[in-house]
Design a binder for these strands. Structure first.
Lengths: 122, 122
DNA sequence: TTATCATATGAGTATACTTTTATATAAGCA
DNA sequence: TGCTTATATAAAAGTATACTCATATGATAA
């Protein structure tokens, strides 16, 4: 069948930015306040706020204010795992000879993967 | 550990464009000449040529001239499967309530997935 | 209330990307 | 050789995107 063009396109457009990926990495360990995100990413406050909004509106992040602080977290923590998988793929792509990570790996069709993975949590 | 920021970023940047994704879809069935790609995507020749170069230089596509034609193909055909997986993820993300596709699915860490998938071909 | 800290917004600028227009190269055929 | 088809490149125009700077809002505490 293929893939939904608009869905992937939007997804990638949101995630193809360095600042935004840094933010995601900073949220790997769990929920963080904006100030903590600033520390971890080194982004200027106003720029971080700009990108946080984009990520929030895309549904990637969830935000919650508690007192004076606003805490952000990954809406779906497994996103980082997907990113990791994409990174592996990208590395082997940019470096066609040495696909060390998984020399014989071919990503299976989604349906088969769901079957193989048992589609289970954890 | 997380993911290689630069790798994902570049990967997504190449794939976040509508024209380029259309080209990838057009190559799903296998190798195609530029003219065939034009037909299937509806892109103007010069624009397609522009994007084909980007995809080629990123290592996503491989090109081969035979006579007057240049044939393009996916360097790694399983890319479409990864895109499909990302599409599923994106759909459930933009639509947080109805993750119909896989209501209980969490992407596993890469290492575990390799284990579960047996890291095998086909 | 005023002051302060935490975060967000808006306007303006800079930059990067996509698309178009015009032109070039490359191969095959008369 | 000159002509036609297939594809690529370069420059210009258009558009989107990220970033900075100035300012605003929201919460708390004195």
């Amino acid at each position: 069948m293929g893939f939904s063009l608009a869905a992937v396109q939007g997804f990638f457009k949101v995630l193809c930015d360095d600042s935004r990926l840094r933010i995601l990495q900073a949220l790997g360990g769990g929920e963080r306040s904006v100030s903590e995100i600033l520390e971890r990413t080194g982004l200027p406050q106003t720029l971080a706020s700009f990108h946080l909004r984009i990520l929030r509106e895309a549904g990637v992040l969830a935000a919650e204010r508690r007192g004076p602080f606003v805490y952000y977290r990954l809406a779906e923590p497994s996103l980082l795992n997907l990113l990791e998988a994409c990174a592996k793929y990208a590395e082997s792509m940019s470096d066609p000879k040495a696909s060390k990570a998984s020399p014989d790996f071919q990503w299976p069709p989604w349906a088969r993967m769901c079957r193989m993975m048992g589609n289970r949590r954890r």
